[in-house]
Simulated assay, not measured.
Amino acid sequence: MNTRTRTLIYGLLISCILLAGAVVVQRHSALQSRRSEREAIKLYGEKNDELFLELISKFESLQPLSDTLSSISSITDMKDRVHNQMLLDLGKKQADTATDDIIQLIQAADVTEEDEKLRYRVNMLIMTSKKQEDVALLAFSGNLWRAVYNTSSRYWHSEPKVIDRHSLYAMSEAAIEVNALNQTMLTMRARAQSLREQSDAEDTKVRIPLLKQELLDSLAPHLQKLAQINDSYNTEAAK
C-alpha cells in the first residue's frame, strides 16, 4: 500500500469519525432541547395552575356591571343629561374591565391538547388550546363596551335627548345575561377557593384541569349570548 493510498484511507476514516461525532452531538443536542422544552412546559403548567386558582378565587363580581346596565335600561328622565351620561360612562368602563378580567382568566385556563407548545393566538394572548382561542374570541365579541358606547353616542346626538327603545331593550337584555354570568362565576370562584384550601396536593393537581375545562365550557354560552346582543343591537344602531 503506497503513501497516497494510506493517506486517502486515513482521510476517509477521519471523515467518518468526525461525521459520527457530529451525529452524536446533534442527537444529544436534540434530546437536550426536547428535554428542556418538556421541563419548560411542565414548569409553565405548574405556575399556570397557581395563577389560574388565584385569578378565579379573586375574580371580581360582575354584579356592579349588571346593576349599571339595568339602571341604564330603566332611565325615564331623558333630560337629566349629566346623570344619564355618568351612568353610560360607568357602564363602558365596567364592561371593559369585566372583559379584561375574563380574558385574563381564559388565558390562564390552559387545557391539554396534542400539541402542547405555547403559541400566540387571539390578540397575541399566550394559550395552549383551540378551546381557549374559541372562548377568547367570544369574550372579545361579547365586550359590552360597544353596545354601551353606541347607546351613549345615540343619546348624545339625539334631539331631543332620548335613549331609544332599542337601546333600552339591549341594555336590559345585557343586564340579565351579565347577572347569569356572574352567578356562574360565583360558583366557579367557590370551587377554586375550595381547591386552594384543601390539603391533598395530588387531588388538587388532578382537579385543576377539570375546573379549567368546566370554566371554559361554562363561559362559552354566556359570552355567545352577549356577543349576539352586541351584534343585534349594533346592527340596529348602524341603520
Rank of each mutant, 00 (worst) to 15 (best):
M171L: 14
L215W: 06
L144F: 05
V178I: 11
H157P: 04
T128M: 12
T112D: 14
E214R: 10
R196H: 08
L215G: 04
L211S: 02
R154L: 10
L186Q: 12
N182W: 00
S172Y: 09
Y169C: 13
V178F: 02
F140I: 14
T187S: 04
E214P: 04
N143M: 01
E116L: 01
L181W: 02
K131T: 14
V178W: 01
N150R: 14
L216R: 06
T128C: 11
L195C: 06
N123W: 05
N182R: 01
K161T: 03
T151H: 07
T187A: 07
N182E: 01
H157L: 11
A139F: 04
M185H: 05
L138H: 01
Y155A: 02
E113P: 02
R196E: 13
N150M: 13
V178M: 02
S167K: 09
V206K: 15
L137V: 04
I163D: 02
E113M: 00
S199R: 09
I176F: 12
K117N: 12
T187L: 09
E197P: 03
L216K: 04
R154F: 00
R165V: 11
K117E: 15
T204C: 06
A170T: 01
A180G: 06
V162D: 08
D203F: 05
M188H: 08
D200F: 04
M171K: 08
S153W: 06
E113K: 00
S172N: 13
S141A: 08
L137T: 04
K130L: 15
